[in-house]
């Protein structure tokens, strides 16, 4: 279970969100400029809230009053930004392997196999795994980014507009696939989107963000 209470002034926008999500993914839906991406960035820790409290399964990640602010590197959150943000100089497999190298839980020689396995589970075959991001389709890029996030064995997952860069046909397939995968993972997941249809397909729960505030929620 993840509890997020955050306040931050961003220019003219007074962001003030209050979210709780657990086994079922929560979809945060809102127009651009409503504060979705900033909310995710505050949860990851790269953007500091003015006030608030973030709790993940009983561990406090941020609490302004108690002076707790766990560094980004130690929060163990899987983050997939808009457009996947794959490392362009590394192949799909090396992108996933980067996460495995960082966590260091596996022996070196097992990491390539594990990277291929993770990619395979998300429908990226060995052929695509050897290609660089520029040579992958939009749908493949999203899957690789998700595999990379999962490789670090995150305690929660944050997805920013996972479907927005895809063409309509790919979007349908990836949407169904993503909904299935998220159900299977069973870790607290927050998905951000501006698209109502995506929101309903992906999440059992939908919260609506408008002008920095949650106006309708689960």
């Amino acid at each position: 279970m993840m509890t997020v209470r955050l306040k931050r002034q961003l220019g003219a926008l007074a962001l003030d969100v209050d979210l709780r999500f657990g086994d079922a993914p929560l979809v945060l839906c809102g127009a651009s400029g409503s504060g979705k991406t900033s909310t995710l960035r505050m949860i990851t820790g790269v953007l500091r809230p003015d006030m608030g409290h973030i709790d993940l399964d009983g561990t406090v990640l941020f609490d302004r009053d108690a002076g707790v602010d766990v560094p980004v590197e130690e929060r163990r959150l899987g983050y997939v930004p808009q457009d996947a943000a794959l490392f362009p100089h590394l192949s799909a497999r090396e992108n996933v392997r980067f996460a495995l190298d960082v966590s260091g839980t596996l022996a070196r020689r097992e990491r390539n196999a594990r990277a291929l396995q993770l990619l395979g589970e998300l429908g990226v075959g060995p052929d695509a795994a050897s290609r660089r991001p520029a040579e992958l389709s939009g749908g493949e890029r999203q899957r690789v980014a998700l595999a990379r996030a999962l490789a670090s064995e995150p305690r929660a997952l944050l997805l920013d507009e996972p479907l927005s860069a895809l063409d309509p046909a790919t979007r349908q397939t990836v949407r169904a696939f993503l909904a299935q995968t998220l159900q299977r993972l069973r870790i607290p997941t927050l998905v951000v989107t501006h698209d109502r249809e995506d929101a309903e397909a992906l999440g059992a729960q939908v919260a609506v963000l408008e002008g920095g505030r949650v106006v309708a929620g689960p």
């Binding site: 943000a85 794959l86 960082v102 990379r148 670090s152």
Partner: peptide, 18 residues
């Protein structure tokens, strides 16, 4: 360099030198 790429690397636990 795209900022989100560097953010992802950090969320994966990578130290600043890495």
């Amino acid at each position: 360099i795209d900022e989100p790429m560097l953010i992802v690397a950090r969320t994966l636990g990578a130290s600043p030198p890495r």
